[in-house]
Nucleic acid binder design. Structure first.
Lengths: 120, 120
DNA sequence: CATTTAGTTAACGTCTTTGTTAATATTCTC
DNA sequence: GAGAATATTAACAAAGACGTTAACTAAATG
């Protein structure tokens, strides 16, 4: 995690998710934590490019890395426990606003003065 | 809406949401549909820049425009009814995978062979 | 009908992102 | 220890995103 302001972090998360390869990587990491090499087999990409995508995901706070004892060359990547909290929070806010708007519209449409008739 | 493959559309939606100004615009449009000028007052930005952001949002399928009769110069922008369906669908998928992983981990931790003891 | 109003598109410069090739650790294996 | 394996960083070029200024469209307004 590298972005500090909540707004920047949210932007970074959305930006990170805007790439299909990165979304695939996240899905793979959601099945189980994996090494970079395992990811490389599936997303078909040079190790360097993949490493960069991993960095983007890390800086967005979506995945975290963790060393292991068996082979110190390798780091295991996994989805950060509350990776999606900011995004889900924003989405919830949006849903709420949407509900309100629908309700306001409904109230307007059913108001006594216009007795259910819309303009068009 | 301009992106056709579901994957591309999802990418476009995430990319569109990765900008704080665009998120603000969406929030304003969720309160009520508005003209470009009204948005401009709040996001503090040149009309040209704003127009571009609107185009991005349109192409991502998040907002839709609609002419009005009173003044034909003006178009009203609003949040597309199922703007967030792809994003929410993907997020739901992620949540599901996350639940499964937690469950798998729990099953592992509680398996008879290791009787609840973890490695560390 | 000229002017103002509302807004979009075009052209340009700048900054960022992304992939590639090359170079750099670090550590396992023989 | 020499060499292979695992992965990351550096440097560079290509492509894309963003804001600005300028030019443009279309319609309201006097």
């Amino acid at each position: 995690m590298d972005q500090h302001s909540p707004t920047l972090q949210l932007s970074a998360a959305f930006a990170a998710l805007s790439d299909a390869s990165r979304r695939d990587m996240i899905r793979m990491l959601l099945q189980k934590p994996r090494r970079a090499g395992e990811l490389a087999e599936c997303v078909d990409m040079s190790p360097q490019a993949l490493s960069r995508h991993l960095r983007v995901l890390r800086k967005a706070g979506l995945v975290s890395e963790q060393g292991i004892e068996e082979d110190a060359r390798v780091r295991i990547y996994s989805v950060h426990p509350n990776a999606f909290q900011p995004v889900q929070q924003w989405m919830a806010q949006v849903e709420d606003l949407w509900r309100r708007q629908l309700q306001a519209f409904k109230a307007f449409a059913e108001s006594p003065r216009r007795s259910g008739k819309l303009k068009a």
